[in-house]
Structures are given as structure tokens and as C-alpha cells.
């Protein structure tokens, strides 16, 4: 009973920190990561399909390093290394460096999503298009990509959900997202279990609503073809 009343107390006193600042920053970071990831990830997927060997090699290396090292380590690395490379970052809060790391991380995963989405389209579709005399470019744009998008979008939604959870690691640098707010409130109230429960529920609601929405959208998309 004390537990529940503590939760109510914390929420009435600190709801703004959790619901507005925390969720706000979490969603902001996730959107930045996925939007940036979608943009740079597409470029990387494109680069990986190019004939330039060195470009392919560099992109493969980035993807493998990002996938093969922990996110937390990447964040530490970014926060300490990026300001050295890009001096203006020194004067700015950590959230800028953190955003860059999130974008790079997300790009690597998104590029793999796009690559596998394109490769999942039946090669016969490309053959048929080319056999009619269409150029590689036209075949790609009118036949392959529209079909690949149907594979890519659901996976991109999942990536978004993953990123929402991963932004919690950014709390290490106190950038203001949900987990940071949890640390702040825990520090003032000394009610660890209650704060963790609230934060856990909020993360769950966020990702659950999103994944249900995505499912519905996926179904409606399938119905159209």
C-alpha cells in the first residue's frame, strides 16, 4: 500500500519531469536517431551496392563495428572523441554528441534493414524488368524499391522501438531523457523501486502503443497489394 501511495505521490509531484521532459527528450532523441539513420542508412545501403570496392569496404567496416560493440561504449567514445574532432561541440551539451552517436548507430542497422529488404525482393522481378529493356535505374525505381519498401517499413518501425529503449543508455551523460529523469527523482526521493516502476511502465506504454500502431498500419499496407 505504501508502495502505491508513494507512486501516486511521486507522480503528482514530478509528473512534469517524467511525462513532459523525460518522454519528450526520449522521443526527440529516437526521432533524430531514426530519421538520421534512415537518411544515412539509405546512403550506406546504396554505397554498399555500388561497384566502388573501397566504399563498400568502409561501409561494411562501419556496420560491423557498430553491430559488434556495445552501445554504451559507443556513447562514451562519441562523447569524448567527437568534441576533439569537431571543436564547436565542446561548448554544447552532451546531447549533441549523443545524437551523433545514435544516428551513426541507427544508420548501421537501418542500412542492413534496407539492404536485406531489397535483397528479399524476388530476383525474377528485376530479370523480368530488364528483359523488357528497362534500364537498371527504372527497374529499381518502379519495380524493386516499391516492393522493398513493404519489407523495409515494418523493420524500420521495430528499429524505432529498439532505439527508444536504447536511448536510456544516454542517461549516463544526463541528457534529460526518461531514464535521466528517473535518476533525478530517485536522487531526491530515495524511492528507487517506485521510480523504476514508473519509468518501466512509461517505456512499456510507449513501445507497446507504437508496436500496436505499427502492426495495424502494416496490415492495412498489405491489404493494398
Amino acid at each position: 500500500m505504501v508502495f502505491l501511495s508513494n507512486i501516486v505521490m511521486i507522480m503528482t509531484r514530478y509528473w512534469q519531469l517524467f511525462l513532459i521532459k523525460g518522454i519528450g527528450y526520449t522521443l526527440l532523441l529516437s526521432v533524430i536517431a531514426v530519421a538520421g539513420g534512415a537518411f544515412f542508412g539509405s546512403l550506406m545501403a546504396l554505397g554498399k551496392r555500388s561497384k566502388i570496392k573501397i566504399l563498400k569496404w568502409i561501409i561494411t567496416a562501419i556496420v560491423e563495428v557498430v553491430r559488434g560493440t556495445p552501445m554504451l561504449l559507443q556513447l562514451y567514445f562519441g562523447v569524448f572523441v567527437f568534441p576533439k574532432i569537431i571543436p564547436p561541440l565542446n561548448a554544447l551539451p552532451y546531447i549533441y554528441s549523443v545524437s551523433i552517436v545514435l544516428i551513426i548507430n541507427s544508420s548501421a542497422y537501418v542500412s542492413e534493414i534496407i539492404r536485406s529488404g531489397i535483397e528479399a525482393v524476388d530476383p525474377g522481378q528485376m530479370e523480368a524488368a530488364r528483359s523488357l529493356g528497362l534500364t537498371q535505374r527504372t527497374a529499381m525505381l518502379s519495380i524493386i524499391l516499391p516492393q522493398a519498401v513493404k519489407n523495409i517499413l515494418p523493420a524500420l518501425g521495430n528499429e524505432f522501438i529498439t532505439v527508444i529503449k536504447e536511448t536510456s543508455l544516454a542517461s549516463t551523460f544526463f541528457v534529460g531523457e526518461l531514464m535521466t529523469q528517473e535518476i533525478v527523482v530517485r536522487g531526491t526521493t530515495y524511492l528507487a523501486l517506485e521510480c523504476l516502476t514508473i519509468t518501466g511502465v512509461l517505456y512499456f506504454v510507449l513501445t507497446f502503443v507504437l508496436s500496436k500502431g505499427l502492426k495495424r498500419w502494416e496490415r492495412s499496407m498489405k491489404a493494398h497489394a
Binding site: 524476388d122 522481378q125 528483359s131 523488357l132 529493356g133 528497362l134
Partner: peptide, 30 residues
């Protein structure tokens, strides 16, 4: 090569109709 292929129609074992196009669009696309 594309000009050459325009003069050669190809029919595949697995049909390979464009899944994202209607029957008519399949025919008119090229």
C-alpha cells in the same frame, strides 16, 4: 543492351509479373 532487349520478349518459368502493379500496368509499364 537495353535496345537489344526491347526487341526480344522473354517469358519466364515463374511468370515474374510485377507484384506491385496491376495486370494492365504490368503490360503498359515498359
Amino acid at each position: 543492351i537495353n535496345l537489344g532487349r526491347q526487341k526480344m520478349g522473354m517469358v519466364f518459368q515463374n511468370f515474374n509479373l510485377f507484384n506491385n502493379k496491376t495486370v494492365k500496368e504490368n503490360i503498359t509499364l515498359a
